[in-house]
Structure formats: structure tokens, C-alpha cells
Amino acid sequence: MAQVLTANRLSDGEVVYLAADGAWVESFDAAKILATPADGEAALAVGQEAERNQQLVHAYLFDITPAKKPVKMREIIRAAGPTVRRDLGKQAAF
């Protein structure tokens, strides 16, 4: 199953994802799809390095569906914001 690497930004806790160009982006849609376990491991190493240099807290991989959506409700909510406050979080900007 394909995966995406995520973490929270140390400075403000914002949910971020590893993008294809190596940047940390706020939008799930801009996240790099990690197709193989090897891709996942390489990305995780990048995340752990970003933890060590005080950019991020707790980098981890999560699974996505073939339609490129998070499998778990937890990640759906992290990618959008609270389902009970559509005016808040990332979804508010859309």
C-alpha cells in the first residue's frame, strides 16, 4: 500500500507532509506518494533528520488508498481539520 510521510511542525504544531521536492508542505494534496516500502524508509530517514534539527515532531508514515486518500479517519481529519468545525484547520482555506 502506498504511503505518505507526515509530522507536526515544531514551531506551531501545524500538520505537514513531505513533498516530492523535499519541502515540508501543509497540503496533503501536495504530499509525495511513496509507492514502495523503500521509498517510505528513505522518506522516514528525511523526517527523522528534520526531527533532529528541530523542524518537526514525530515523523511517521501512513497508508493511502489507490484513490490517494488517507485510509484512516485520523489522517482524514488531520488533512482537513475538525469535522465539526468546517471553518477551522486546513479545510477553512479552501
Binding site: N8, L10, S11, D12, G13, E14, V15, E51, N53, Q54, V57, H58, R74, I77, R78, G81, P82, G89
Partner: peptide
């Protein structure tokens, strides 16, 4: 000290928790 890297997250966590600061899904 946390922002400068003197404290790791593992060391900072109990300190921030004793001041009521969590890291949740979207933010602190």
C-alpha cells in the same frame, strides 16, 4: 532550549506537559 535543540522532544515533552501543553492532531 527546545527550539534551539538543547532539549529533544522526548526530554521536552514531560516539561511541556507539566505546563499543560500537548501536541494534538492539528496543533498544540
Amino acid at each position: 532550549r527546545r527550539l534551539s535543540g538543547e532539549l529533544t522532544e522526548e526530554e521536552f515533552k514531560p516539561l511541556r506537559l507539566m505546563n499543560g501543553l500537548y501536541l494534538q492532531l492539528h496543533a498544540y
